[in-house]
Amino acid sequence: MDYLQLNRANWDSRVPIHVGSDFYDVEGFKAGRSPLRSFEVAEVGQVAGRRLAHLQCHLGLDALAWARLGAEVTGLDFSEAAIAQARAIADECGIPARFVTADVYDAPRALGETYDIVYTGIGALVWLPDLTRWAETVAALLKPGGFLYLAEFHPFTDLLDDETGTTVTHDYFDRGPHVWEWPYTYTGDEVLEHQTSVQFRHTLGDVVSAVAAAGLRVEFLREHGQTYFPRFASLVESGGEYRFPEGRPRFPLIYSLRAAAGSGPRPAADRPA
């Protein structure tokens, strides 16, 4: 099974649907809307004048939002269709940014540069089979003193039933691969041309252990009680965020992690030539 080929075809077919969707609201972005979550902006801190790489950037909206805040941005994605859209949006908005088509594991070679910040946004890690190699890739991209910032769906949410979020229906340690045949993407009911995707689950321990093994120092791991789509039918929406209603027990829906590179040599794996 070639997970990369299947997933690339699946994401290539999502691109035109996502560009026209209310979920991504590309026209709103062009008018000045930022897709970044408020906790991300606060936790990353000042980016003006800093070099930032966004791995698995899709349409590039988050990357370009960091550029609007003053970062010197490079976005990378394995979908040429997505990168073409990212470049077009950047050009139309007059935002300076670099976008490169490559698999995330090839990022050090494809980018050939190092960065102050490596950013990975929500919904990225599920597409990667090997977190150890991913973390080594991140470490190879970071300048000494730079940091990784990751915001991601909490793996606990994958355990529970979709309706109430109260019943454990899945195995937390079933890492996959999980092959899905699904005609739609998450933005609506338009039918995808390529409907097969391959996903991989990672525990919170998997993520932290991979980051630490790559030589990065974890500065914080924070868990958040909100998400940004109706993951469970029992969630209530307010101001674009979805939370459990008052009075019921809660659990984390998203987590964020920041980890700093040291001043020593970077891991040998995937160093830029």
Rank of each mutant, 00 (worst) to 15 (best):
R68Q: 13
Q195C: 04
A268Y: 11
A210H: 01
F232E: 01
S263T: 14
R258A: 05
A31Q: 15
A97H: 07
M1N: 13
T74R: 07
K143D: 08
D103L: 13
V104P: 02
E223Y: 05
E246S: 15
Q195L: 00
A259D: 05
E190W: 08
L61P: 00
A63V: 01
A81N: 12
L59W: 02
E246F: 14
S209I: 03
A124R: 02
T164R: 14
R8A: 08
V138M: 06
D62S: 12
T187Q: 12
H18R: 10
S256E: 08
G225A: 11
A88V: 04
A82F: 05
D206P: 06
A48N: 10
Q226R: 15
S38G: 04
R266K: 13
P249D: 13
V44N: 05
F220V: 01
Q5W: 06
D62Y: 07
E136W: 06
L150F: 09
F251M: 10
R33W: 06
Y119L: 07
Q195T: 13
R175Q: 12
R217C: 13
S38C: 03
A135D: 00
T227G: 05
A63W: 03
E80T: 11
E40D: 14
I89G: 04
G225L: 09
A213G: 12
R109N: 11
G20M: 05
R222S: 06
A65V: 07
V218P: 02
Y242G: 02
P265K: 04
T167V: 15
G146K: 05
L55A: 10
T114G: 08
T132K: 13
A273N: 11
V126K: 12
R33K: 14
V198W: 05
D174G: 02
D171T: 03
I254H: 00
F229H: 08
L221M: 08
P267D: 04
A97G: 11
F232I: 03
L131S: 01
P252H: 08
P249Q: 11
E181K: 09
R109G: 06
R98D: 09
R51C: 03
L4P: 02
E43G: 09
W180D: 13
P183Q: 03
L64Q: 00
V73T: 03
D22V: 15
Q46K: 14
V41L: 13
Q46T: 15
Q56D: 10
A139E: 07
L55K: 02
Y186V: 14
A212S: 14
T132P: 10
A102I: 05
D158F: 12
G123S: 02
A210Q: 00
L59F: 04
R68K: 14
L253A: 03
W11V: 02
V41M: 10
